[in-house]
Design a protein around this nucleic acid. Structure first.
Lengths: 238, 238
DNA sequence: ATGTTAATCAAGTGATTGATTGAATCAATA
DNA sequence: TATTGATTCAATCAATCACTTGATTAACAT
Protein backbone atom coordinates (compact mmCIF):
# COMPACT_ATOMS: atom_id res chain seq x y z
CA UNK A 1 0.00 0.00 0.00
CA UNK A 2 2.94 2.26 0.67
CA UNK A 3 4.07 1.38 -2.80
CA UNK A 4 0.69 2.40 -4.13
CA UNK A 5 0.90 5.73 -2.39
CA UNK A 6 4.26 6.35 -3.99
CA UNK A 7 2.79 5.33 -7.32
CA UNK A 8 -0.03 7.71 -6.64
CA UNK A 9 2.24 10.69 -6.26
CA UNK A 10 4.22 9.85 -9.36
CA UNK A 11 1.06 9.41 -11.45
CA UNK A 12 -0.24 12.62 -10.03
CA UNK A 13 2.96 14.48 -10.79
CA UNK A 14 2.91 13.21 -14.36
CA UNK A 15 -0.71 14.26 -14.82
CA UNK A 16 -0.13 17.68 -13.33
CA UNK A 17 2.86 18.18 -15.59
CA UNK A 18 0.66 17.34 -18.59
CA UNK A 19 -2.07 19.75 -17.52
CA UNK A 20 0.52 22.43 -16.84
CA UNK A 21 1.96 21.91 -20.30
CA UNK A 22 -1.43 22.43 -21.91
CA UNK A 23 -1.92 25.60 -19.91
CA UNK A 24 1.53 26.79 -20.84
CA UNK A 25 0.65 26.63 -24.51
CA UNK A 26 -1.95 29.33 -23.91
CA UNK A 27 0.44 31.51 -21.94
CA UNK A 28 2.06 33.30 -24.89
CA UNK A 29 0.23 36.12 -26.69
CA UNK A 30 1.71 35.01 -30.01
CA UNK A 31 0.19 31.56 -29.73
CA UNK A 32 -3.16 33.02 -28.74
CA UNK A 33 -3.10 35.08 -31.93
CA UNK A 34 -2.27 31.99 -33.97
CA UNK A 35 -5.09 30.05 -32.33
CA UNK A 36 -7.50 32.88 -33.02
CA UNK A 37 -6.59 32.74 -36.68
CA UNK A 38 -6.86 28.96 -36.79
CA UNK A 39 -10.30 29.28 -35.25
CA UNK A 40 -11.42 30.95 -38.49
CA UNK A 41 -10.24 27.99 -40.53
CA UNK A 42 -7.13 26.14 -41.58
CA UNK A 43 -4.20 28.33 -42.57
CA UNK A 44 -0.69 28.06 -43.96
CA UNK A 45 2.36 29.16 -42.02
CA UNK A 46 3.04 32.31 -44.01
CA UNK A 47 -0.57 33.46 -43.77
CA UNK A 48 -0.44 32.98 -40.03
CA UNK A 49 2.87 34.80 -39.79
CA UNK A 50 1.48 37.71 -41.77
CA UNK A 51 -1.77 37.94 -39.82
CA UNK A 52 -0.04 37.76 -36.46
CA UNK A 53 2.92 39.90 -37.52
CA UNK A 54 5.31 37.26 -36.25
CA UNK A 55 8.36 36.18 -38.20
CA UNK A 56 7.84 33.02 -40.21
CA UNK A 57 10.43 31.10 -38.23
CA UNK A 58 8.96 32.20 -34.93
CA UNK A 59 5.47 31.34 -36.09
CA UNK A 60 6.62 27.93 -37.21
CA UNK A 61 8.15 27.29 -33.82
CA UNK A 62 4.96 28.30 -32.04
CA UNK A 63 3.02 26.01 -34.33
CA UNK A 64 5.23 23.14 -33.41
CA UNK A 65 4.70 23.77 -29.74
CA UNK A 66 1.00 23.72 -30.43
CA UNK A 67 1.42 20.48 -32.31
CA UNK A 68 3.50 18.92 -29.55
CA UNK A 69 0.68 19.77 -27.16
CA UNK A 70 -1.75 18.10 -29.56
CA UNK A 71 -3.82 21.20 -30.20
CA UNK A 72 -3.14 21.51 -33.93
CA UNK A 73 -2.44 19.09 -36.74
CA UNK A 74 -0.90 19.78 -40.13
CA UNK A 75 -1.14 18.47 -43.64
CA UNK A 76 0.87 19.24 -46.74
CA UNK A 77 -0.64 20.94 -49.75
CA UNK A 78 2.06 21.26 -52.39
CA UNK A 79 4.77 23.41 -50.91
CA UNK A 80 2.54 24.73 -48.20
CA UNK A 81 1.94 23.17 -44.80
CA UNK A 82 -1.59 23.79 -43.65
CA UNK A 83 -2.40 23.80 -39.95
CA UNK A 84 -5.77 23.38 -38.33
CA UNK A 85 -7.20 22.98 -34.84
CA UNK A 86 -7.64 19.36 -33.84
CA UNK A 87 -10.40 20.04 -31.38
CA UNK A 88 -13.12 22.66 -31.12
CA UNK A 89 -12.90 22.38 -27.33
CA UNK A 90 -9.70 24.38 -27.60
CA UNK A 91 -11.83 27.41 -28.41
CA UNK A 92 -13.98 26.79 -25.36
CA UNK A 93 -10.83 26.79 -23.29
CA UNK A 94 -9.65 30.05 -24.80
CA UNK A 95 -13.03 31.59 -24.12
CA UNK A 96 -13.03 30.41 -20.52
CA UNK A 97 -9.57 31.90 -20.04
CA UNK A 98 -11.01 35.17 -21.30
CA UNK A 99 -14.01 34.94 -18.97
CA UNK A 100 -11.86 34.18 -15.93
CA UNK A 101 -9.59 37.07 -16.87
CA UNK A 102 -12.52 39.45 -17.18
CA UNK A 103 -14.04 38.38 -13.90
CA UNK A 104 -10.89 38.42 -11.82
CA UNK A 105 -8.58 40.97 -13.33
CA UNK A 106 -9.60 44.57 -13.01
CA UNK A 107 -7.11 45.51 -15.72
CA UNK A 108 -9.07 43.57 -18.32
CA UNK A 109 -12.32 45.30 -17.50
CA UNK A 110 -10.47 48.61 -17.68
CA UNK A 111 -9.09 47.86 -21.14
CA UNK A 112 -12.52 46.84 -22.33
CA UNK A 113 -13.95 50.09 -20.99
CA UNK A 114 -11.23 51.92 -22.85
CA UNK A 115 -12.40 50.20 -26.01
CA UNK A 116 -15.85 51.73 -25.61
CA UNK A 117 -14.15 55.09 -25.11
CA UNK A 118 -16.32 56.44 -22.32
CA UNK A 119 -19.61 55.24 -23.76
CA UNK A 120 -21.50 52.49 -21.99
CA UNK A 121 -21.35 49.49 -24.29
CA UNK A 122 -24.71 47.76 -24.79
CA UNK A 123 -25.14 44.07 -24.13
CA UNK A 124 -24.00 41.91 -27.03
CA UNK A 125 -26.64 40.31 -29.25
CA UNK A 126 -26.97 36.55 -28.82
CA UNK A 127 -26.64 34.36 -31.88
CA UNK A 128 -30.24 33.17 -31.54
CA UNK A 129 -31.44 36.78 -31.45
CA UNK A 130 -29.40 37.57 -34.52
CA UNK A 131 -30.96 34.72 -36.47
CA UNK A 132 -34.46 35.95 -35.62
CA UNK A 133 -33.66 39.56 -36.42
CA UNK A 134 -32.02 38.65 -39.69
CA UNK A 135 -35.11 36.68 -40.65
CA UNK A 136 -37.25 39.73 -39.88
CA UNK A 137 -34.90 41.90 -41.89
CA UNK A 138 -34.84 44.41 -39.03
CA UNK A 139 -31.08 44.44 -38.69
CA UNK A 140 -27.98 45.16 -40.75
CA UNK A 141 -25.19 42.68 -40.10
CA UNK A 142 -21.63 43.84 -40.76
CA UNK A 143 -18.47 41.76 -40.77
CA UNK A 144 -15.59 43.93 -39.56
CA UNK A 145 -12.77 41.59 -40.56
CA UNK A 146 -10.29 42.17 -43.39
CA UNK A 147 -11.62 41.30 -46.81
CA UNK A 148 -9.60 38.08 -47.21
CA UNK A 149 -10.94 36.59 -44.01
CA UNK A 150 -14.46 37.57 -45.02
CA UNK A 151 -13.90 35.88 -48.37
CA UNK A 152 -12.77 32.69 -46.62
CA UNK A 153 -16.13 32.42 -44.90
CA UNK A 154 -18.74 34.64 -43.27
CA UNK A 155 -22.23 34.69 -41.85
CA UNK A 156 -24.78 34.65 -44.71
CA UNK A 157 -26.32 38.05 -45.19
CA UNK A 158 -23.38 39.95 -43.72
CA UNK A 159 -21.79 43.00 -45.33
CA UNK A 160 -18.01 43.14 -45.25
CA UNK A 161 -17.07 46.51 -43.78
CA UNK A 162 -13.49 46.60 -42.50
CA UNK A 163 -12.91 49.19 -39.80
CA UNK A 164 -11.12 51.54 -42.17
CA UNK A 165 -14.16 51.67 -44.45
CA UNK A 166 -16.72 52.20 -41.75
CA UNK A 167 -17.64 55.65 -43.09
CA UNK A 168 -18.49 54.20 -46.49
CA UNK A 169 -21.36 52.33 -44.86
CA UNK A 170 -23.09 55.44 -43.56
CA UNK A 171 -24.70 56.84 -46.73
CA UNK A 172 -26.56 53.59 -47.42
CA UNK A 173 -27.83 53.35 -43.86
CA UNK A 174 -31.28 54.59 -42.86
CA UNK A 175 -31.00 56.82 -39.78
CA UNK A 176 -32.97 54.42 -37.59
CA UNK A 177 -31.02 51.36 -38.73
CA UNK A 178 -30.02 48.71 -36.22
CA UNK A 179 -26.53 47.43 -36.87
CA UNK A 180 -24.92 44.28 -35.50
CA UNK A 181 -21.15 43.91 -35.89
CA UNK A 182 -18.99 40.83 -35.54
CA UNK A 183 -15.36 39.91 -36.12
CA UNK A 184 -12.98 37.05 -35.40
CA UNK A 185 -14.31 36.11 -32.03
CA UNK A 186 -14.11 36.99 -28.37
CA UNK A 187 -10.43 37.91 -28.54
CA UNK A 188 -10.91 40.33 -31.42
CA UNK A 189 -11.51 44.01 -30.75
CA UNK A 190 -12.65 45.08 -34.21
CA UNK A 191 -16.34 44.67 -33.43
CA UNK A 192 -15.92 46.55 -30.15
CA UNK A 193 -14.37 49.45 -31.99
CA UNK A 194 -16.87 49.42 -34.83
CA UNK A 195 -19.75 49.57 -32.35
CA UNK A 196 -18.14 52.42 -30.45
CA UNK A 197 -17.49 54.38 -33.64
CA UNK A 198 -21.02 53.86 -34.96
CA UNK A 199 -22.65 54.78 -31.67
CA UNK A 200 -20.66 57.99 -31.61
CA UNK A 201 -22.38 58.78 -34.89
CA UNK A 202 -25.75 58.16 -33.27
CA UNK A 203 -26.36 54.79 -34.85
CA UNK A 204 -27.91 51.95 -32.86
CA UNK A 205 -25.06 49.47 -33.13
CA UNK A 206 -24.45 46.36 -31.05
CA UNK A 207 -21.91 43.59 -30.98
CA UNK A 208 -22.63 39.97 -31.80
CA UNK A 209 -21.77 37.59 -28.99
CA UNK A 210 -18.67 35.71 -30.02
CA UNK A 211 -17.58 35.95 -33.64
CA UNK A 212 -17.50 34.01 -36.84
CA UNK A 213 -16.02 30.76 -35.43
CA UNK A 214 -18.62 30.64 -32.66
CA UNK A 215 -21.43 31.28 -35.12
CA UNK A 216 -20.15 28.51 -37.36
CA UNK A 217 -19.98 26.09 -34.41
CA UNK A 218 -23.60 26.87 -33.64
CA UNK A 219 -24.58 26.47 -37.26
CA UNK A 220 -22.91 23.08 -37.47
CA UNK A 221 -24.67 21.97 -34.30
CA UNK A 222 -28.04 23.11 -35.60
CA UNK A 223 -27.56 21.36 -38.91
CA UNK A 224 -26.68 18.20 -37.06
CA UNK A 225 -29.88 18.54 -35.09
CA UNK A 226 -31.83 18.91 -38.32
CA UNK A 227 -32.81 22.46 -37.51
CA UNK A 228 -31.84 25.53 -39.49
CA UNK A 229 -29.97 28.55 -38.25
CA UNK A 230 -28.73 29.66 -41.62
CA UNK A 231 -30.42 33.04 -42.01
CA UNK A 232 -30.83 32.71 -45.77
CA UNK A 233 -32.73 29.49 -45.30
CA UNK A 234 -34.52 30.87 -42.28
CA UNK A 235 -35.89 33.71 -44.37
CA UNK A 236 -37.66 31.20 -46.56
CA UNK A 237 -38.81 29.14 -43.62
CA UNK A 238 -40.44 32.12 -41.88
CA UNK B 1 -8.93 55.94 -38.70
CA UNK B 2 -5.31 54.95 -38.99
CA UNK B 3 -4.97 56.09 -35.43
CA UNK B 4 -7.85 53.86 -34.45
CA UNK B 5 -6.21 50.89 -36.08
CA UNK B 6 -3.03 51.55 -34.11
CA UNK B 7 -5.17 51.84 -30.99
CA UNK B 8 -6.77 48.59 -31.94
CA UNK B 9 -3.50 46.70 -32.01
CA UNK B 10 -2.33 48.17 -28.71
CA UNK B 11 -5.61 47.32 -27.01
CA UNK B 12 -5.45 43.88 -28.49
CA UNK B 13 -1.87 43.35 -27.37
CA UNK B 14 -2.80 44.44 -23.86
CA UNK B 15 -5.77 42.08 -23.75
CA UNK B 16 -3.78 39.15 -25.11
CA UNK B 17 -1.08 39.80 -22.52
CA UNK B 18 -3.74 39.65 -19.82
CA UNK B 19 -5.20 36.41 -21.10
CA UNK B 20 -1.74 34.93 -21.47
CA UNK B 21 -0.99 35.89 -17.89
CA UNK B 22 -4.06 34.08 -16.63
CA UNK B 23 -3.07 31.00 -18.60
CA UNK B 24 0.46 31.22 -17.28
CA UNK B 25 -0.79 30.96 -13.74
CA UNK B 26 -2.07 27.47 -14.55
CA UNK B 27 1.17 26.41 -16.21
CA UNK B 28 3.03 25.31 -13.08
CA UNK B 29 2.23 21.98 -11.39
CA UNK B 30 2.81 23.50 -7.97
CA UNK B 31 0.15 26.14 -8.51
CA UNK B 32 -2.28 23.52 -9.79
CA UNK B 33 -1.79 21.59 -6.57
CA UNK B 34 -2.41 24.72 -4.53
CA UNK B 35 -5.55 25.48 -6.50
CA UNK B 36 -6.79 21.93 -6.00
CA UNK B 37 -6.37 22.35 -2.27
CA UNK B 38 -8.07 25.74 -2.27
CA UNK B 39 -10.95 24.18 -4.16
CA UNK B 40 -11.70 22.16 -1.03
CA UNK B 41 -11.95 25.29 1.06
CA UNK B 42 -9.89 28.16 2.40
CA UNK B 43 -6.48 27.22 3.74
CA UNK B 44 -3.51 28.79 5.49
CA UNK B 45 -0.08 28.99 3.94
CA UNK B 46 1.51 26.29 6.07
CA UNK B 47 -1.34 23.86 5.47
CA UNK B 48 -1.01 24.41 1.73
CA UNK B 49 2.75 23.98 1.90
CA UNK B 50 2.34 20.74 3.79
CA UNK B 51 -0.35 19.31 1.50
CA UNK B 52 1.54 20.19 -1.65
CA UNK B 53 4.97 19.30 -0.22
CA UNK B 54 6.31 22.67 -1.30
CA UNK B 55 8.49 24.81 0.94
CA UNK B 56 6.60 27.50 2.78
CA UNK B 57 8.46 30.29 1.00
CA UNK B 58 7.88 28.76 -2.38
CA UNK B 59 4.23 28.20 -1.62
CA UNK B 60 3.88 31.79 -0.49
CA UNK B 61 5.40 33.00 -3.74
CA UNK B 62 3.03 30.90 -5.79
CA UNK B 63 0.15 32.23 -3.77
CA UNK B 64 1.20 35.76 -4.55
CA UNK B 65 1.33 35.02 -8.23
CA UNK B 66 -2.17 33.66 -7.91
CA UNK B 67 -3.20 36.79 -6.06
CA UNK B 68 -1.60 39.06 -8.64
CA UNK B 69 -3.63 37.25 -11.28
CA UNK B 70 -6.72 37.84 -9.17
CA UNK B 71 -7.53 34.17 -8.68
CA UNK B 72 -7.17 34.07 -4.89
CA UNK B 73 -7.76 36.53 -2.07
CA UNK B 74 -6.46 36.42 1.46
CA UNK B 75 -7.60 37.43 4.89
CA UNK B 76 -5.89 37.40 8.23
CA UNK B 77 -6.98 35.17 11.06
CA UNK B 78 -4.79 35.84 14.06
CA UNK B 79 -1.24 35.14 12.97
CA UNK B 80 -2.29 33.07 10.02
CA UNK B 81 -3.06 34.31 6.51
CA UNK B 82 -5.93 32.38 4.99
CA UNK B 83 -6.26 32.14 1.22
CA UNK B 84 -9.34 31.27 -0.77
CA UNK B 85 -10.43 31.17 -4.39
CA UNK B 86 -12.11 34.38 -5.51
CA UNK B 87 -14.15 32.74 -8.24
CA UNK B 88 -15.62 29.27 -8.69
CA UNK B 89 -15.14 29.69 -12.45
CA UNK B 90 -11.47 29.03 -11.80
CA UNK B 91 -12.36 25.40 -11.15
CA UNK B 92 -14.25 25.22 -14.43
CA UNK B 93 -11.14 26.48 -16.16
CA UNK B 94 -8.96 23.86 -14.46
CA UNK B 95 -11.41 21.17 -15.46
CA UNK B 96 -11.50 22.33 -19.07
CA UNK B 97 -7.70 22.29 -19.16
CA UNK B 98 -7.90 18.69 -17.98
CA UNK B 99 -10.51 17.81 -20.61
CA UNK B 100 -8.51 19.39 -23.43
CA UNK B 101 -5.41 17.56 -22.21
CA UNK B 102 -7.24 14.23 -22.12
CA UNK B 103 -8.71 14.71 -25.58
CA UNK B 104 -5.59 15.91 -27.32
CA UNK B 105 -2.63 14.42 -25.52
CA UNK B 106 -2.16 10.70 -25.85
CA UNK B 107 0.20 10.71 -22.87
CA UNK B 108 -2.59 11.73 -20.53
CA UNK B 109 -4.86 8.90 -21.66
CA UNK B 110 -1.92 6.55 -21.20
CA UNK B 111 -1.28 7.70 -17.64
CA UNK B 112 -4.95 7.32 -16.83
CA UNK B 113 -4.89 3.79 -18.24
CA UNK B 114 -1.89 3.13 -16.04
CA UNK B 115 -3.96 4.19 -13.06
CA UNK B 116 -6.52 1.49 -13.79
CA UNK B 117 -3.63 -0.96 -14.00
CA UNK B 118 -4.81 -3.00 -16.95
CA UNK B 119 -8.43 -3.18 -15.91
CA UNK B 120 -11.00 -1.30 -17.95
CA UNK B 121 -12.26 1.48 -15.73
CA UNK B 122 -16.05 1.81 -15.62
CA UNK B 123 -17.77 5.08 -16.45
CA UNK B 124 -17.88 7.46 -13.50
CA UNK B 125 -21.14 7.93 -11.63
CA UNK B 126 -22.82 11.28 -12.20
CA UNK B 127 -23.70 13.37 -9.19
CA UNK B 128 -27.40 13.14 -9.96
CA UNK B 129 -27.14 9.34 -10.08
CA UNK B 130 -25.31 9.32 -6.79
CA UNK B 131 -28.04 11.34 -5.11
CA UNK B 132 -30.70 8.91 -6.31
CA UNK B 133 -28.69 5.84 -5.34
CA UNK B 134 -27.90 7.25 -1.91
CA UNK B 135 -31.60 7.89 -1.38
CA UNK B 136 -32.32 4.26 -2.28
CA UNK B 137 -29.59 3.11 0.04
CA UNK B 138 -28.23 0.87 -2.71
CA UNK B 139 -24.74 2.27 -2.62
CA UNK B 140 -21.84 2.74 -0.21
CA UNK B 141 -20.14 6.11 -0.63
CA UNK B 142 -16.52 6.37 0.45
CA UNK B 143 -14.38 9.50 0.74
CA UNK B 144 -10.79 8.58 -0.07
CA UNK B 145 -9.19 11.79 1.15
CA UNK B 146 -6.99 12.16 4.24
CA UNK B 147 -8.92 12.41 7.48
CA UNK B 148 -8.31 16.13 8.02
CA UNK B 149 -9.77 17.05 4.66
CA UNK B 150 -12.75 14.80 5.32
CA UNK B 151 -13.24 16.54 8.63
CA UNK B 152 -13.22 19.94 6.93
CA UNK B 153 -16.24 18.95 4.85
CA UNK B 154 -17.60 15.93 3.00
CA UNK B 155 -20.64 14.59 1.21
CA UNK B 156 -23.32 13.62 3.76
CA UNK B 157 -23.50 9.86 4.14
CA UNK B 158 -19.91 9.27 3.07
CA UNK B 159 -17.49 7.02 4.96
CA UNK B 160 -13.93 8.32 5.29
CA UNK B 161 -11.64 5.58 4.02
CA UNK B 162 -8.16 6.87 3.16
CA UNK B 163 -6.35 4.75 0.59
CA UNK B 164 -4.07 3.22 3.21
CA UNK B 165 -7.07 1.91 5.14
CA UNK B 166 -8.93 0.47 2.20
CA UNK B 167 -8.60 -3.07 3.54
CA UNK B 168 -10.33 -2.10 6.77
CA UNK B 169 -13.50 -1.44 4.79
CA UNK B 170 -13.77 -4.95 3.42
CA UNK B 171 -15.09 -6.90 6.44
CA UNK B 172 -18.11 -4.59 6.80
CA UNK B 173 -18.97 -4.81 3.12
CA UNK B 174 -21.55 -7.26 1.78
CA UNK B 175 -20.09 -9.18 -1.18
CA UNK B 176 -22.59 -7.66 -3.63
CA UNK B 177 -22.08 -4.11 -2.38
CA UNK B 178 -21.86 -1.25 -4.85
CA UNK B 179 -19.21 1.25 -3.85
CA UNK B 180 -18.77 4.80 -5.13
CA UNK B 181 -15.49 6.56 -4.34
CA UNK B 182 -14.63 10.24 -4.54
CA UNK B 183 -11.71 12.43 -3.58
CA UNK B 184 -10.50 16.00 -4.10
CA UNK B 185 -11.69 16.41 -7.63
CA UNK B 186 -10.80 15.72 -11.23
CA UNK B 187 -7.08 16.28 -10.62
CA UNK B 188 -6.91 13.81 -7.76
CA UNK B 189 -6.01 10.17 -8.40
CA UNK B 190 -7.04 8.70 -5.03
CA UNK B 191 -10.50 7.70 -6.24
CA UNK B 192 -9.04 6.16 -9.40
CA UNK B 193 -6.72 4.04 -7.32
CA UNK B 194 -9.35 3.07 -4.77
CA UNK B 195 -11.67 1.89 -7.55
CA UNK B 196 -8.90 -0.11 -9.18
CA UNK B 197 -7.91 -1.72 -5.88
CA UNK B 198 -11.50 -2.59 -4.96
CA UNK B 199 -12.29 -4.02 -8.39
CA UNK B 200 -9.23 -6.22 -8.15
CA UNK B 201 -10.88 -7.67 -5.05
CA UNK B 202 -14.04 -8.32 -7.04
CA UNK B 203 -16.05 -5.47 -5.61
CA UNK B 204 -18.31 -3.40 -7.86
CA UNK B 205 -16.66 -0.04 -7.36
CA UNK B 206 -17.04 3.11 -9.42
CA UNK B 207 -15.74 6.63 -9.30
CA UNK B 208 -17.88 9.70 -8.68
CA UNK B 209 -17.67 12.26 -11.43
CA UNK B 210 -15.63 15.17 -10.12
CA UNK B 211 -14.96 15.31 -6.40
CA UNK B 212 -15.98 17.08 -3.25
CA UNK B 213 -15.69 20.67 -4.58
CA UNK B 214 -17.81 19.85 -7.62
CA UNK B 215 -20.43 18.16 -5.48
CA UNK B 216 -20.56 21.19 -3.20
CA UNK B 217 -20.98 23.52 -6.17
CA UNK B 218 -23.92 21.44 -7.32
CA UNK B 219 -25.40 21.37 -3.86
CA UNK B 220 -25.15 25.15 -3.56
CA UNK B 221 -26.84 25.57 -6.93
CA UNK B 222 -29.64 23.20 -6.01
CA UNK B 223 -30.24 24.96 -2.71
CA UNK B 224 -30.41 28.24 -4.56
CA UNK B 225 -33.01 26.76 -6.87
CA UNK B 226 -35.03 25.66 -3.88
CA UNK B 227 -34.52 22.00 -4.67
CA UNK B 228 -32.72 19.51 -2.49
CA UNK B 229 -29.74 17.40 -3.43
CA UNK B 230 -28.57 16.78 0.10
CA UNK B 231 -28.87 13.03 0.36
CA UNK B 232 -29.83 13.09 4.03
CA UNK B 233 -32.74 15.35 3.24
CA UNK B 234 -33.51 13.44 0.05
CA UNK B 235 -33.96 10.25 2.07
CA UNK B 236 -36.81 11.90 3.92
CA UNK B 237 -38.27 13.40 0.79
CA UNK B 238 -38.43 10.03 -1.00
C1' DA C 1 20.01 19.93 -63.13
C1' DT C 2 18.85 24.73 -61.43
C1' DG C 3 16.30 28.02 -59.23
C1' DT C 4 12.24 29.36 -56.44
C1' DT C 5 9.19 29.28 -52.83
C1' DA C 6 7.68 27.48 -48.30
C1' DA C 7 8.75 25.64 -44.05
C1' DT C 8 11.77 23.81 -40.61
C1' DC C 9 15.99 23.30 -38.05
C1' DA C 10 20.03 24.83 -35.27
C1' DA C 11 22.47 27.95 -32.56
C1' DG C 12 22.70 32.00 -29.82
C1' DT C 13 20.87 35.94 -26.95
C1' DG C 14 18.31 38.31 -23.46
C1' DA C 15 14.63 37.91 -20.38
C1' DT C 16 11.80 35.23 -17.26
C1' DT C 17 10.70 31.40 -14.21
C1' DG C 18 10.73 28.13 -10.24
C1' DA C 19 13.06 26.97 -6.39
C1' DT C 20 16.38 27.63 -2.42
C1' DT C 21 18.23 30.12 1.36
C1' DG C 22 18.32 33.49 4.84
C1' DA C 23 16.82 37.90 6.44
C1' DA C 24 12.99 41.05 7.31
C1' DT C 25 8.18 42.06 8.41
C1' DC C 26 3.96 41.67 10.71
C1' DA C 27 0.30 40.60 14.17
C1' DA C 28 -0.75 38.67 18.40
C1' DT C 29 0.44 37.60 23.02
C1' DA C 30 3.34 37.20 27.33
C1' DT D 1 7.62 46.30 25.27
C1' DA D 2 9.63 42.22 23.95
C1' DT D 3 8.92 37.85 22.14
C1' DT D 4 7.12 34.42 19.33
C1' DG D 5 5.49 32.33 15.37
C1' DA D 6 3.73 32.84 10.62
C1' DT D 7 4.44 34.92 6.46
C1' DT D 8 6.74 37.57 3.05
C1' DC D 9 10.72 39.74 0.86
C1' DA D 10 15.36 39.66 -1.32
C1' DA D 11 19.21 37.61 -3.47
C1' DT D 12 20.64 33.85 -6.06
C1' DC D 13 21.11 29.94 -9.42
C1' DA D 14 19.90 26.82 -12.97
C1' DA D 15 16.58 26.03 -16.39
C1' DT D 16 13.50 27.47 -19.77
C1' DC D 17 11.37 30.62 -23.11
C1' DA D 18 10.59 33.80 -27.06
C1' DC D 19 12.75 35.55 -30.62
C1' DT D 20 16.46 36.35 -34.15
C1' DT D 21 19.69 34.90 -37.67
C1' DG D 22 21.46 31.84 -40.98
C1' DA D 23 21.54 27.31 -42.87
C1' DT D 24 18.80 23.23 -44.45
C1' DT D 25 15.12 20.45 -46.24
C1' DA D 26 11.07 19.70 -49.31
C1' DA D 27 8.13 20.36 -53.28
C1' DC D 28 7.50 22.33 -57.54
C1' DA D 29 8.71 24.92 -62.06
C1' DT D 30 11.77 26.00 -65.67
Amino acid sequence: MVQELAMSTSYKAALLAEYALVAQVFSAPGRLMILEQLAQGERGVDTLAEKTSLSVANCSQHLQQLRRAGLVTSRRDGKAVIYRLTDAKTLDLMDLIRIVAERNRAQVAQILRGLSDGMDAPEPVSRADLAARLADGTVTLIDVRPADEFAAGHIPGALNVPLSELECLLPDLPPDAQVVAYCRGPYCVYAHQAVTALRKLGIDARRLEGGFPEWREDAVKCLRDGRLLNPDAAQHAV
